[in-house]
Simulated assay, not measured.
Amino acid sequence: MSETQEIIPVAKCDLVGMVAELFAEGYRLVQIGCSTLSGGYELTYSFDRDYRFTNLRFSVAPDEQVPSISAIYPGAFLYENEIHDLFGVEIMHIAVDYRGTLYRTALATPFSVDNVKLPEPPKPKVQLEPGKPASAGDGPGGQTG
């Protein structure tokens, strides 16, 4: 049985306040994840209390800075350094800041928007007119006439 996970879209400027509220309510930090998007990054902060997950999510552009939550959850410094080193997202005021040396990789920021080739979105399917049977010439690559 899987339980639903709440995903709360947040503004970056509200992150630290919301994290402080979760801490005060007894939530534990589970993980901070980052995904590369076509024009930036999506960050997801996951918390747990009583086996129920709450996720805070927001997107940032490549040149935006993100506030650290390591003053509230000290263990967050590892996630934040990892996101900085692998994605190139600038995290401000990390309690223990490795300044880009947590990971040694052949390519600096290997998961950054500059280094990740995202897949092309799927092409739309050909719509047939209602009631019209499909023929060999319908669809991509087909010939008509």
Rank of each mutant, 00 (worst) to 15 (best):
S2E: 15
Q5F: 07
E6D: 10
P9L: 09
A11H: 12
K12Q: 13
K12N: 04
C13E: 05
D14M: 11
G17V: 04
M18A: 13
M18P: 00
V19K: 09
E21R: 09
A24W: 05
A24N: 07
G26W: 01
R28D: 13
R28W: 03
V30D: 12
I32R: 09
G33S: 15
S35Y: 06
S35Q: 10
T36D: 03
T36Y: 03
L37H: 00
L37K: 01
S38W: 14
S38E: 15
S38A: 15
G40D: 01
G40A: 06
E42G: 12
T44C: 14
S46M: 12
S46Y: 07
S46W: 05
F47K: 00
F47S: 00
R49S: 05
R49H: 15
R49F: 11
R49Y: 04
R52F: 12
F53C: 06
N55I: 04
L56V: 04
R57F: 14
F58Q: 04
A61T: 10
P62E: 02
V66R: 01
S68K: 02
S70P: 02
S70C: 02
Y73S: 13
Y73L: 14
P74M: 09
P74G: 05
A76V: 10
A76G: 10
Y79V: 05
Y79F: 15
E80F: 04
E80T: 00
N81L: 04
N81K: 13
H84L: 04
H84K: 04
D85K: 00
V89T: 03
E90H: 08
M92W: 09
M92N: 02
H93N: 06
I94G: 04
V96R: 09
D97T: 05
Y98K: 12
G100F: 12
T101G: 08
Y103Q: 02
Y103I: 03
R104Q: 10
R104V: 07
T105E: 07
L107C: 05
V113K: 00
N115T: 00
N115C: 01
V116H: 02
P119N: 04
P119I: 07
K123D: 11
P124S: 09
P124K: 04
P124Q: 02
K125E: 08
K125N: 06
Q127D: 08
Q127L: 09
G131N: 14
P133S: 08
A134C: 14
A134P: 11
A136F: 11
D138N: 15
D138R: 11
G139P: 15
G139F: 15
G142P: 01
Q143V: 07
Q143S: 08
Q143D: 07
T144H: 12
T144R: 14
